[in-house]
Structure formats: C-alpha cells, structure tokens
Amino acid sequence: MPNVIEIRHLTKTYGKCRGVSDVSFQVAKGDIFGFLGPNGAGKSTTIRSMLGLIRFQRGSIRILGKDIRTDREGILREVGYLPSETMFYPKMRVKDLLRMAADVRKKDCRKEAGKLCQRLQIDVDKKISDLSLGNRKKVGIVCAMQHRPKLFVFDEPTSGLDPLMQNEFFKLVQEYTAEGATCMLSTHVLSEVKNYCKNTAIMKEGKLLCVDSVANITRTSAKRVKLQREGRQESYLYEGDINELVRGLAGHDIQDILIEEPSLEEIFMHFYTPDAALRQEGEGSPAGRQEDATM
C-alpha cells in the first residue's frame, strides 16, 4: 500500500530551543494513524512542518507523493486540517467562512458542507464570535472535511466536543477512510488511539520514541498482576520470566489472581514516566516489583 505521509529525519529548532529532532515515520493509505505525546513533545511542530506553516532545517516531508518544500499548494489542496486551537474570523458567519474555505479551494462544497453541518448540528447562520469552543471545533471539522480530502490531519479534534459529537466525528472519519482517505490523529486521548487507530507514533521531548501498530505496542512481555493474598489486594506490573512469577507466588496464600495485558494507558505512562511503571527491579519476589499495592 503506498505511503501517504513520508517523513524522513525531520529536524526543526526554534533558535536555541528544541523543536523536533530526527523524526522519521510513514503513514500508509487508508490508515487512521495515532500521533501520541504529551504537551511539548513536538507533535504540533511535526504537523505544522507537514503543512508548510513552519520551515524545518533538515529532513524531508513527502505527502501524497509531493514534497512540501516544492509543492505546498498542491499538497494542501488534498489535505483537510483541523488545528487544536480552532480560531476563525469572529465577524464572519459560519456559512460565509465555509464558503470562503471552499472558494480558496476553487471547489463547490455546498452539498458536502450541508451534510456535515446537519450531522454535526451546526447553525450556519450564527456568527463565529457567538460560537462556543465545541461549536467552533465542529465548524473546523466541516472546514477540514467539506472538500473530501485524501488526507485528514486532526490535532486534538475531540477537545471541547460532547461525547455524542465525538462519536459522530469518529463515524465520519471511519466513513471517509473506508472510501480511501487517510487520517492522522494527534491526541492525548489514549482510548481514541486504541479504539480507532491501526498504527501509532509516540513522541517525547522532540524525538520519536516508537512507531508501530497499536496491537504491537500493547503486546508486551509485561503483565498486569492483580491478586488478593493474606486479606490484601495488590496490583503491579511484572516484566520478566513468567515462571519466576509463578514460583514467587507459590509460597503465598492467594485467594484470587488475575494476570492480564497492561492497558495502553500504562504503556503510554511507561514511555513518559519510566520510574512509575513497567519497572523491572531485579529478579526478586513479585512483591519486590509491586507498583500500586492497594486497589
């Protein structure tokens, strides 16, 4: 399957400040690609470099086979972008804003915009200045989708949306990707990545920590161990030889035990706070690897 996004060795610094360093990953056609990382990890810098909003010092970015440095306009014609801070011209009405975006694209998007506004329950006669954060976000979603782009880039798309609208948003994303579009979803919400993304990249401090399928990332040798012994409930992550764990537990009076895969949240935390989880503190007793004993 051809790659829609190809980023190689992307490096961007802001003067002496860090931006992103040596970031490389690809996103295949039809994928819903999760882009995870805490604030300041470099997600937005990567996205803005992809859209030509900022200039990068090293590396290359190819989107839909085109180089962002030489064919930015051609790329943006096929991209729908929703920024995390969705701001528009406050004096405009929603319908005028949508028409303006369509006119710049030289496309008649009225039919698609009408459908999207209906599904997202947007009043197109309202002024932008009268919209709440959530409604502004919805207008941003319509702006990003109304021209039926080949690639969607969403930066924190669900912040400010109520759960019903979040659900409707992901339905729309799935419908468009089923028709061949590709989606890059930058988010803090791990459940969104787990529920909707096939592949994901994790950023930290301007560097790419890993790129893999969500299934592979959650498939780890670490196990979440929950047990009840000697009247106490315990829970910890164990990583190591499973036989060691069983032997370690053998001498204890255990009333109940559950050994399962760690959640995506726990894996995410592993990448950002290595002291907090997935510790492999020696090969001693399971109690020695206890993380959060009281449940």
Binding site: R48, L51, G52, L53, R72, E73, G74, L76, R77, V79, Y81, P83, E85, T86, M87, F88, Y89, P90, A101, V104, R105, G140, C143
Partner: peptide, 14 residues
C-alpha cells in the same frame, strides 16, 4: 494575533 493563521494558511494558497 487572532490565531487564524492556521486556518488561512492550511488552505491551498501561497
């Protein structure tokens, strides 16, 4: 200043 640059300059416009 108004944070509208991301909207305007993510449109296909040099």
């Amino acid at each position: 200043d108004g944070h509208t640059g991301e909207f305007l300059f993510s449109l296909p416009l040099k």
